[in-house]
Design a protein around this nucleic acid. Structure first.
Lengths: 333, 333
DNA sequence: CCGCGGAGGTTTATCGATCAATCTGGTTCC
DNA sequence: GGAACCAGATTGATCGATAAACCTCCGCGG
């Protein structure tokens, strides 16, 4: 490993001068500077970021801590990475597999220290965990759980999304809309908030909302989604539409429907939420609530920049707008 | 920020003793140790990993550098993370968006230094880049490009996978199999190696392989895949099956086929490659080549462990076996 | 009474880079 | 001629933790 000290010896100056030359700080004559640069390239020197981090207290790195990377958050990550690079910073991802233990591990101060700022999407952390993390590092929380008022938070307009999706179904003839992944007992999270929109749409349309059509899905997993809808069919509960609270769940639903010979959208209409990249390629193309992830990423990054700059602005709770993308899985498409 | 020095002052011992007490090294009396621990908890001390990293030369962190996280690599990452944690290490992800520039940035020594080991899946790096990186940090390369013999490398049995997929199609009546995402001009990479398997299967079956059925797809992107197959249909080139060189490409193909009223598998059979999580949920379920990613992850981690342990074992080039998962998108399903 | 060994610490150096303060010759200007 | 100034360096401390070498009692055997 080549250090500044090696360069200093070879050029006959001190380490400080080398540092100044390489970082363009302080006063260094052109002659000395070019000698130093030449030797640096010759030896193949590269700065030790760990040492710099220790000394400067900055790592120019931002962490995105998320439950999983192969769905919604993976798409968000792509957008965030670009924004981070634009300000000379670097984005790394940590995945917690939605385990509270992993999440706790990820937000220990030890880990948080490594980064100038943290974007956190937690599923299992409570207010205390988040509050502790916030006091230790610039933090912006993403996601659909309620958060302490003290922390910057960006979430989606889940109720509105649920309402849009359900209203669209009702407008096109559906009368019994399953909300797959919803939950009557949850008090927060997407199972709750997107369900609220579902209920709202029924109220608006004057259609009764049957609680039997609220079908929970464990872990929002596509497998469990298919199983849950299959069970509903087996139970003989009649329905003519499915609102999947995520696109993955909607995918599971479409799979279950196909297994039972039910056609989409003729027999059952389907709407998802997240508008994932692949949703436009399903057969039929999936109508879905778009989370406007570009705006969401921009907002999150703006808030984080603000925190990192040390400004003690009041914490913001931003609700990102959503809109419905209509495609072939509903009768209007 | 609370440091060991703060604890040392409060307990009246030196920093070294604090370090020894907290890490269970050296000699510290039980009385002193418990006093130190008590003060540490009281002050809310947490070790500064950056300082430790600088001093120890270890970060207990492994990086997985990949083009994108929302497909195949996202699923690999999940498996690798578990294996890393098992040895007390931590996995972080870096995405390069398949841009050679980002990849170069990711493998500068500066970045690589941050990690004890690196798992790299590069699409645009040449031998020199990789060779340079290898000399600087424990490195294992994943992926389907040819690699210098000096570096540990895990790749898939692409030819075999392509052969399996194509043979399966030919066995079930297909005679004109499009290889979507293949390329006649590529000399390596999946466009080449999976095409080799396609050709092999034709030779084995004594069916002529029409070069007009080799249809390249830019960036292996689902959008481009759909467009490419649509163009093929418009050109009036007859075909009765599609081998998509990735599941994403197969998805694009299924979408294009549906748009033109072609039924899968009755009119056109489809096979993919990667066996992504969602592929089992498409309608019809997608027959796909499974990359055995659990084994792949285990192999990669084993090689990396070996490198990190400093053993100068000869570099291994491992070819991970694949197998065909037959589902409804082919006529046997 | 001397010397030895070990428990329980402390001292000092180190990792590599950065920063504030300081030193050293020249020049310039009045 | 001397004060003021400046370019171009250097010194020394620092970030926080760790490792190796060293010191200091204390008890104990000979």
């Amino acid at each position: 490993m080549v250090t500044m000290s090696d360069i200093a010896q070879r050029t006959g100056v001190t380490v400080t001068t080398v540092s100044n030359a390489l970082t363009d700080r302080g006063r260094v004559s052109d002659a000395t500077r070019s000698r130093i640069l030449a030797v640096a390239t010759e030896l193949g020197y590269e700065v030790n970021l760990t040492a710099r981090h220790l000394r400067m207290g900055r790592s120019d790195t931002i962490a995105l801590i998320v439950p999983s990377v192969h769905d919604y958050f993976g798409e968000i990550a792509d957008k965030l990475a670009v924004l981070a690079e634009a300000t000379g910073r670097h984005l790394v991802l940590e995945r917690t597999s939605a385990l509270t233990e992993s999440e706790r591990a990820a937000i220990t101060f030890q880990r948080l220290q490594m980064f100038d700022g943290v974007l956190l999407s937690a599923v299992g952390l409570d207010h205390d965990d988040v509050e502790r993390a916030r006091r230790r590092t610039p933090l912006v929380v993403l996601g659909e759980r309620p958060m302490p008022a003290t922390v910057d938070h960006v979430r989606l307009a889940n109720e509105e999304g649920g309402r849009l999706a359900t209203a669209h179904l009702l407008e096109h003839g559906a009368r019994r809309v399953v909300v797959l992944g919803g939950s009557l007992s949850a008090e927060f999270g997407i199972s709750h908030s997107r369900l609220v929109g579902w209920r709202q749409a029924h109220d608006d349309a004057g259609v009764p909302a049957d609680p039997r059509l609220v079908v929970p899905v464990q872990d929002y997993d596509v497998r469990h989604a298919r199983a849950a809808l299959t069970a509903l069919i087996a139970d003989g509960v009649p329905f003519d539409a499915v609102f999947g609270v995520t696109d993955m769940i909607a995918l599971g639903a479409m799979s279950a429907l196909a297994e039972h010979g039910l056609r989409v959208p003729q027999d059952v209409q389907v709407v998802g939420f997240d508008n994932l990249l692949f949703s436009d390629f399903l057969v039929p193309r999936l109508t879905s609530v778009d989370p406007h992830s570009r705006e969401l990423a921009a907002t999150a990054m703006r808030l984080l920049e603000q925190r990192m700059s040390g400004a003690d602005a009041a914490p913001e709770h931003v609700v990102n707008p959503v809109s419905l993308v209509v495609r072939g899985s509903t009768r209007a498409g």
